[in-house]
Simulated scan of single mutants.
Amino acid sequence: MSDTLPPLRDVIAAHGLSASKALGQNFLFDEQLLARIAAVPGGLANRAVLEIGPGPGGLTRALLRAGARVTAIERDARCIPALAELGDAFPGRLRVIEDDALAVDHAAIMDEPFAVVANLPYNIGTALFIRWMGGAEWPPAWTSLTLMFQQEVAQRIVAAPGTSAYGRLAVLAGWRARARLAMKVHRSAFTPPPKVMSAIVHVEPDAMPAGLSARTLERVTEAAFGQRRKMLRQSLKSVPGALSALDRSGIDSTRRAETLTIDEFVKIARAIGDGSATG
């Protein structure tokens, strides 16, 4: 039955759906493009996949056709009937949770390792990314993230030190994971077309550096990039132990945050931990 699904435009028309600006929605209808996105994380046959904001189910059907077992979190009650029809077409392979993705414990509802694949609603994408990349537990419950962002946000995630896009998101993405720009998506692919271009970022967890806490690194990057035009000796004053950690790390306190490599941020955070441990 899955190969006889009606075109997405027909599904949306039948259910009287339109993209909600308040929910950050933009619908994708191009099924070849959706299949390419679903292919980014590699083979999905019988793999658990978490999708955020499926809307009428365009990416969802691509994931199901790739063989995935999909759990989709959708806040928009208008989309639930269309997703229910998709579930009927792929019996036992789609579970829909009507809730706010920011309020749900993803690891708890999945109960097994899972890939995240999502055309993220623009208004919650960054918050979700920070949540997935943060926290003390590592490796995480997710095995990979394949996420659609506004292209500007995507470029900030994969940015190199010394570039204007480099900041907290790049450090968060790079200190214990590998992030890459998988593909760009033109604004014309969406209905309605957003004002900006989009891009797919793919992230896989890596080994966590020993001897530092995620929270310490988060505090350092928040302070450093929160005042990115200031020298480190000014921007890091609010972080206990950071200035002495700069000295112990051999990092010039007159530098600015965007000039530091991810390894140097790790070195500072580790030195802060060493300093607190030794008093």
Results as ranks from 00 to 15, higher is better:
residue 252 D to L: 02
residue 54 P to Y: 09
residue 239 V to H: 12
residue 40 V to K: 02
residue 48 A to T: 06
residue 183 M to H: 10
residue 54 P to A: 03
residue 84 A to S: 13
residue 74 E to A: 04
residue 276 S to V: 04
residue 243 L to C: 08
residue 60 T to H: 09
residue 79 C to K: 09
residue 123 N to Y: 15
residue 242 A to V: 04
residue 26 N to Q: 08
residue 43 G to V: 01
residue 231 M to V: 01
residue 177 A to V: 00
residue 30 D to S: 09
residue 74 E to L: 07
residue 11 V to R: 14
residue 86 L to K: 08
residue 87 G to S: 13
residue 237 K to T: 08
residue 76 D to L: 03
residue 274 D to Y: 05
residue 54 P to S: 01
residue 5 L to N: 13
residue 195 K to Q: 14
residue 129 F to D: 00
residue 65 R to Q: 15
residue 33 L to Q: 13
residue 278 T to C: 05
residue 59 L to V: 07
residue 131 R to I: 02
residue 189 A to P: 12
residue 214 A to W: 14
residue 182 A to G: 10
residue 116 V to R: 12
residue 22 A to M: 05
residue 164 S to E: 12
residue 77 A to S: 11
residue 165 A to K: 15
residue 142 W to L: 03
residue 13 A to L: 02
residue 123 N to S: 08
residue 137 E to T: 13
residue 268 I to A: 03
residue 232 L to M: 07
residue 30 D to H: 11
residue 255 R to N: 06
residue 126 T to S: 14
residue 180 R to L: 02
residue 133 M to E: 04
residue 51 E to L: 02
residue 268 I to P: 15
residue 240 P to F: 05
residue 230 K to M: 06
residue 2 S to H: 14
residue 243 L to V: 04
residue 49 V to W: 13
residue 16 G to R: 03
residue 177 A to W: 08
residue 26 N to L: 02
residue 245 A to M: 05
residue 238 S to K: 15
residue 265 F to I: 00
residue 68 A to G: 10
residue 84 A to L: 04
residue 170 A to D: 02
